[in-house]
Amino acid sequence: TMQVEMLEKARELFRLCDKEEKGFITKLDMQRLQSELPLTTEQLEAVFDSLEQDNNGYLTPVEFSMGLGKFIGIEQYQ
């Protein structure tokens, strides 16, 4: 159930980034979040690069939730 909850959360957060509901997030989508989140464009690009696995320019829901999972893992570890 932890994993289901995590996936649900990942999907909701993914939707916040994928405003046009394309099904993926581009670097441009990420850069646009700069107006809503307290992060710089450079930081958002760094987030995109660290979440993206295959360097195809798209961040998929799977890659996104894997990143969130890793983050939650780090949080629990601390």
Binding site: K9, L13, L16, L39, L44, V47, L51, G67, I74
Partner: peptide, 29 residues
């Protein structure tokens, strides 16, 4: 080594990103 520096900061940036998104989500109705 710039690549090492990037690795060290990325966790913090990632945490900042997800925390911001999470608080944004909970903040909206």
């Amino acid at each position: 080594d710039p690549s090492m520096k990037a690795g060290a900061t990325s966790e913090g940036v990632l945490a900042n990103f997800f925390n911001s998104l999470l608080s944004k989500k909970t903040g909206s109705p």
